[in-house]
Design a protein around this nucleic acid. Structure first.
Length: 324
DNA sequence: GTCCAATGGGGAC
DNA sequence: TCCCCCTTGGACA
């Protein structure tokens, strides 16, 4: 159940442990049998994320995956866990447990120094890691696609999209998606300009525009609510009513929150926390956000009851006191 | 244990 | 506007 940060972490996981290796691709569930056959036996050459879309290159065809609301990847085998290792794009080596199992999991459940070891890593917002005794492990549940190398395996379950694309189709996908500050496809400067240009000429409410993947790719319901609170902007104001500074402020805050999300694996939208408060926020979802899922509770800043309404079929949380 | 909503988004209607 | 995808955590009994 990811917003953009999780998908970037998954792309890193593929870069660190699958790119450069030949893969046996199958569909234990059977629903992706034809696509799996197209990819089977090829070398994995690239792995990137644009917004919530994962693109894994197979030396020609590309596997396109969108997890939707409850899709998930399970990684197992000799996989790197430490986000700082993952961030290094492909280097493998020492692993620690930081980043995985932070949802109350003990840090010593997996701990290895030296070579990566046999581990199952649950990707997504609640990353967990457990030891695996047999490799490859049996698929758990309805596995749409299994990607197996000699050292690692990735299982995909419950995706909204799982398909094979050619280069032209990948290009078309990239074209219809808005800018993503963590995607490698364009400069940070250009990305910001694209966002501001697109949002400023729309009469739709900014609360809707931030969720529109053609305006900015990767923001979901949590980041939408939190970004607007942090900027003290009323979600109902039209994009065209926002000042240039307000739009650039939103974009730059998104760049910052996304970077934190990619590094920690969590949507920490109350940043700048130190010590015990930071630990509490990491351990407890309820202490992690300004407004998300806090309807009826007093605003952390002004005490006004946090409001909940439906905007475009999605729940919108905001503070009527702060966001004017 | 049972039930429900969930950090999406495409397609049918 | 609903349904699918068919998992998972949390609330509740």
């Amino acid at each position: 159940m990811p917003e953009g940060h999780s998908v970037h972490r998954i792309a890193r996981q593929f870069r660190a442990n699958f790119v450069g290796r030949t893969a046996a691709v199958s569909s234990p569930q059977g629903r992706f049998a034809v696509g799996a056959a197209e990819l089977d036996g090829r070398e994995i050459t690239t792995s990137d994320a644009i917004g919530k879309h994962l693109l894994v290159g197979f030396d020609g065809p590309t596997l396109h995956v969108h997890l939707g609301i409850y899709g998930a990847w399970d990684f197992a085998g000799a996989i790197s866990l430490d986000p700082t290792i993952l961030a290094a794009d492909g280097r493998m080596g020492q692993t620690g447990m930081r980043g995985a199992g932070t949802e109350g999991e003990s840090e010593d459940s997996i701990h290895s120094i030296g070579a990566p070891r046999l581990t199952r890593l649950r990707a997504g917002e609640h990353e967990t890691a457990t030891a695996v005794t047999v490799f490859p492990p049996d698929p758990i549940g309805q596995v749409r696609v299994r990607i197996l190398t000699d050292t690692a395996v990735a299982d995909l379950r419950g995706p909204t999209v799982c398909e094979v694309l050619d280069d032209r189709q990948v290009e078309a996908l990239a074209q219809r998606l808005g800018p993503d500050p963590e995607a490698p496809t364009e400069s940070k400067r250009r990305a910001e300009e694209r966002f501001v240009e697109r949002a400023s000429r729309s009469n739709q409410p900014i609360g809707q525009l931030l969720m529109d993947q053609s305006v900015v790719a990767g923001i979901g319901n949590v980041y939408r609510a939190e970004l607007l609170f942090r900027a003290a902007i009323d979600p109902h104001r039209a994009g065209s009513q926002l000042t240039d500074d307000e739009l650039r402020g939103l974009w730059r805050d998104w760049v910052k929150l996304l970077r934190i999300g990619v590094e920690t694996g969590q949507m920490l939208t109350i940043d700048g926390l130190r010590g015990a408060r930071r630990a509490a926020a990491l351990a407890n979802r309820a202490d992690r956000h300004w407004v998300y899922k806090r309807e009826g509770l007093p605003c952390r800043r002004c005490g006004t009851a946090i409001a909940l309404e439906t905007m475009q079929g999605r729940k919108l949380y905001w503070c009527p006191g702060c966001q004017l």
